[in-house]
Amino acid sequence: MGFFFGLLSGWNFFWSFVELIQKNVDEAAEKLKAKGIKVLGVVCHVSNAQQRKNLIETTVQKYGKIDIVVSNAAVNPSTDSILETQESVLDKLWEINVKAAILLLKDATPHMKKGSSVILISSIGGYHPHSSMAMYGVTKTALFGLTKVLAAEMAPHTRVNCIAPGFVPTHFADFITGNQTIRKTIEDQTLLKRLGTTDDMASAVAFLASDDASYITGETLVVAGGMPSRL
């Protein structure tokens, strides 16, 4: 009886979680619609093959094709050093942060025509992985290489670029940016003396996806307020 109760409770938690995600997607879609933007919100766990397929099929049924793919899904379930990270955590990091982007594009590519664009979202941590986010940083480094390879494979009809955001105070980064001491340290490392914003990142994505960037492919755009990245 105890086992059955625990299983039932687990399913109740699972479906509550799914309902919460759907609610968040619906709320985001409604906010965009309120601004006069035509939008379709679809819940998709990128490691789930059926949900990826549903995302692509639903989009194509609604719009007939896919013009832009922005791969932004990522996790960081551990703050351990790389050699102390459990194998299951290593698998999850690679599966979500790198592999899922490839699998999503495999599904989307048949529906992408001439002039389409792909933007992979990496991180400033891909250049200098922090010790508390070491393996996360390594997966983001991998996206730099993936950008180069995909740009060659998908040319000339599709451009593939990458964005390396600096620190942005989102829920994902709250354990870092929510600490005022750490936040001040990060701000001091930027030339602009501030953290980034979601609008900063969205503007960079919009640029790379637009015709203004029609002669840019295989590149990584660092959007980090002047934080050290590369020469």
Score class of each variant (00 low, 15 high):
141 T>N: 14
219 E>D: 11
137 G>R: 08
170 T>D: 01
150 L>Y: 10
148 K>E: 12
166 G>C: 03
167 F>H: 10
152 A>C: 01
124 I>G: 13
190 T>S: 12
125 G>W: 00
157 H>S: 14
177 T>G: 10
167 F>C: 09
185 T>V: 14
130 H>S: 09
154 M>L: 14
142 A>P: 09
124 I>R: 01
217 T>Q: 09
177 T>K: 07
177 T>D: 09
165 P>N: 13
196 G>D: 02
178 G>F: 06
181 T>G: 00
175 F>M: 15
159 R>H: 11
132 S>C: 11
150 L>P: 10
135 M>R: 03
129 P>G: 12
148 K>P: 01
144 F>S: 06
152 A>L: 13
147 T>E: 07
130 H>V: 15
183 R>M: 13
213 A>I: 10
178 G>A: 07
150 L>S: 07
152 A>D: 08
184 K>V: 06
215 Y>C: 12
177 T>P: 07
204 A>C: 07
123 S>K: 11
201 M>L: 14
137 G>H: 04
202 A>S: 10
187 E>C: 08
224 A>M: 02
194 R>V: 03
130 H>Q: 12
146 L>V: 09
154 M>R: 10
182 I>R: 13
173 A>K: 03
151 A>F: 02
180 Q>W: 09
140 K>V: 12
176 I>K: 00
209 A>R: 00
207 F>C: 09
215 Y>P: 02
127 Y>F: 15
193 K>N: 11
184 K>A: 12
159 R>C: 12
139 T>V: 15
162 C>K: 05
209 A>Y: 03
156 P>F: 01
123 S>G: 10
212 D>H: 12
206 A>K: 03
193 K>C: 01
151 A>D: 03
166 G>K: 06
170 T>F: 03
